[in-house]
């Protein structure tokens, strides 16, 4: 009899504990939002949002906080990296899911897993050692541009490589989850393999691929260390893609030293973190929404 009660007690305690843990993770989401908003309220109350977002003057010592250069820099870097990454990723995903033999497909997938597991600082380090000299010594002069190599372009290349594995693996998943009958039906009508891919499979998988792109975008947007290492860290609106710049996350890192001393600068940097959190959350929610719609569409 006693043993029986112990079992029920264990059951009761464990389920309560799990419930609490689940509440905890939900509240951590809210807590991040609340704490960051509380701390950033100082800068938002002293300056108007318009001033913060569109003034191009970042000079904490004179108490002016304009995020515009960093916002432009983030936009450039994200956009250029996606321009490189998206076509390459989609074509590679097509190869892995449609053309490659089973053996090659497994091999490439594990290859991509390894690429996804490489820490971002290592990407940054290799970019410093390989891409920065390449851009500074060869590419820049070849195009007739004076550049140190630490520039928006270099940062974009690094980011493109970093988001490739995310977009590829999710796109492969989307392509592979399409029913095999779709392929058979299209091929039986006399379409070539490429026509099947272009006309049927890419359309069918488009919600999944789109959400993969959005997730990659979120990653590129929030990536900090690798970008901070190679972008040059100048708070100016980049004149060309070969000049130094700054992104929102790298601004937080590079201003970290001063961060503890001036409360209002602290608040401004925390405001950036809040912005990052909100924007990436928005991206992720859209990506997820699209993904659930895909699943409904194919009755998965």
């Amino acid at each position: 009899m006693k043993r029986f009660q112990l079992r029920l007690l264990k059951e009761g305690i464990s389920s309560k504990a799990m419930f609490l843990l689940t509440i905890l993770i939900f509240s951590s989401f809210v807590a991040i939002f609340v704490t960051l908003s509380l701390k950033s309220s100082l800068v938002v109350s002293e300056y108007s949002l318009k001033e913060l977002l569109f003034s191009s003057n970042w000079d904490p010592e004179r108490y002016s906080f304009g995020f515009f250069p960093a916002i432009v820099g983030t936009g450039y870097v994200t956009l250029i990296s996606m321009l490189f990454a998206v076509p390459i990723a989609i074509l590679s995903a097509i190869y892995i899911s449609e053309y490659a033999s089973a053996q090659k497909s497994v091999f490439l997938s594990s290859f991509i897993d390894i690429l996804a597991g490489i820490p971002s600082v290592v990407f940054g380090l290799c970019a410093l050692l390989v891409i920065v000299p390449f851009v500074g010594v060869y590419l820049g002069p070849a195009l007739g541009i004076e550049t140190t190599g630490m520039c928006v372009f270099t940062a974009s290349i690094v980011l493109a490589v970093m988001v490739l594995p995310i977009i590829i693996s999710l796109s492969v998943e989307a392509l592979k989850s399409l029913p095999i009958e779709l392929r058979d039906a299209s091929l039986s009508l006399g379409a070539t393999k490429w026509e099947t891919i272009k006309g049927v499979l890419l359309k069918g998988a488009s919600p999944g691929i789109f959400s993969a792109i959005l997730l990659g975008l979120g990653r590129a947007f929030g990536e900090t260390m690798a970008v901070a290492m190679v972008i040059g860290g100048k708070n100016q609106i980049p004149r060309s893609i070969f000049s130094a710049g700054q992104t929102l996350p790298s601004l937080i890192v590079s201003s970290f030293g001063e961060m503890m001393s001036i409360p209002i600068e602290q608040s401004a940097l925390i405001f950036i973190a809040l912005l990052l959190f909100l924007i990436v959350t928005f991206f992720n929610l859209i990506a997820r929404y699209i993904n659930t719609r895909l699943k409904k569409r194919w009755h998965l």
Partner: peptide, 16 residues
């Protein structure tokens, strides 16, 4: 919620 937290940049956790 978990998926969103997964995608949140690590710097946000650091600043939090």
């Amino acid at each position: 919620c978990l998926d969103v937290l997964w995608g949140t940049p690590s710097i946000v956790y650091g600043v939090f």
